[in-house]
């Protein structure tokens, strides 16, 4: 077990993160304090939640480009309900956001499952449809901080046992996903369906239905993230989190989740998201223009995918006897 872990991509990523922290600390010693690291984690929580949803979809050989639009739509609906129907309890709003997100994910899933439309086409389409729907609902208007109830805004920031609720939530999602992926038949089915869809059919797994479940999961996470995003930044409008779907895919790729499906782990996705989160938080403190963030994450994605590809590359067959010991 230990040797397997030592060779794993998760460890490689952990080393990379440590190296990154060392470099940042050398320029700015204050970065590595516990308080600041907790802050970075809190700041990355939403990305972690989304990356875990995207991971499941990518594992089944699909992709969800509509995640950020889904997030924005659910966030807007939660904010508008909070504004127009002031009496609704905040927890109910969270629940509504999650259910709505799951339903939107289910639309993606149904189109992929029942109509066999390629996932990239489906989610490209629903992405624009979801964004457009926000406009139809809000008429293009913003819901600002003063239009939201105090509890609505403060829930993710509330401190419980020294950590914000947002951090606790993402931690809970991580643990839940560890259990789901490792301990439930559905979790293993995600791997099987993406690793070898053909064989999955013969083993009695329903490939389409499994993908449907993956989309429901990513949709539900997007819905939860929608509420968290809107309440944390205390604003909701059509374009919130625009383009964030690519950050989410990037976190997965950096975390070693193979775009070809079937390969990837929960710790990998979490570390991938954290890697991006640390870069984002470290740039200002080491006096690099925040405008450089995009170029840096682009470079990191390319390096990550190159490293992953090297690890996945199949070695040629070993036929010669003398070569057996070398290989």
């Amino acid at each position: 077990m230990l040797t397997m872990f030592l060779r794993s991509r998760e460890l490689l990523l952990l080393v990379a993160i440590a190296a990154l922290l060392v470099v940042v600390t050398w320029r700015f010693p204050g970065f590595i304090t516990l308080a600041n690291l907790a802050n970075v984690y809190n700041d990355t929580s939403i990305l972690i939640i989304l990356a875990l949803g995207q991971m499941v979809v990518i594992l089944t050989r699909c992709i969800d480009l509509s995640m950020a639009a889904n997030l924005a739509l659910c966030g807007m609906v939660a904010a508008m309900l909070n504004f127009y129907v002031p009496g609704l309890p905040v927890l109910l709003l969270v629940l509504i956001a999650v259910v709505l997100g799951t339903a939107l994910g289910a639309i993606n899933g149904l189109l992929v499952w029942k109509l066999d439309i390629p996932p990239i086409v489906v989610t490209l389409g629903t992405m624009t449809i979801f964004r457009g729907t926000i406009f139809l609902l809000s008429g293009g208007a913003w819901i600002n901080a003063h239009q939201m109830s105090d509890l609505f805004k403060s829930l993710p920031r509330g401190i419980v046992a020294g950590m914000p609720v947002l951090s606790w939530l993402s931690l809970a999602v991580i643990i839940a996903m560890l259990v789901v992926m490792r301990r439930t038949p559905t979790g293993r089915a995600f791997y099987a369906v993406g690793g070898n869809p053909h064989a999955a059919v013969y083993t009695g797994l329903d490939v389409g239905y499994t993908r449907f479940k993956a989309y429901c999961l990513s949709g539900g996470f997007a819905g939860l993230a929608g509420y968290l995003w809107v309440s944390r930044y205390a604003v909701a409008y059509v374009d919130i989190a625009a383009g964030f779907e690519l950050d989410v895919v990037a976190a997965c790729v950096i975390g070693g989740i193979s775009i070809a499906g079937g390969v990837g782990t929960v710790p990998g996705a979490v570390l991938g998201a954290l890697f991006l989160g640390i870069i984002k938080n470290a740039l200002p403190v080491v006096n690099i223009s925040p405008f450089a963030q995009m170029a840096i994450s682009g470079t990191v994605i390319i390096i990550a995918v190159a490293v992953n590809a090297r690890a996945e590359r199949r070695k040629g067959r070993v036929i010669l006897k003398r070569a057996e010991h070398v290989a």
Partner: peptide
């Protein structure tokens, strides 16, 4: 399934 363990392959589903 290449990336699942032998036991998982036997019992998947």
């Amino acid at each position: 399934f290449d990336d699942l363990s032998v036991a998982e392959n036997i019992f998947i589903g």
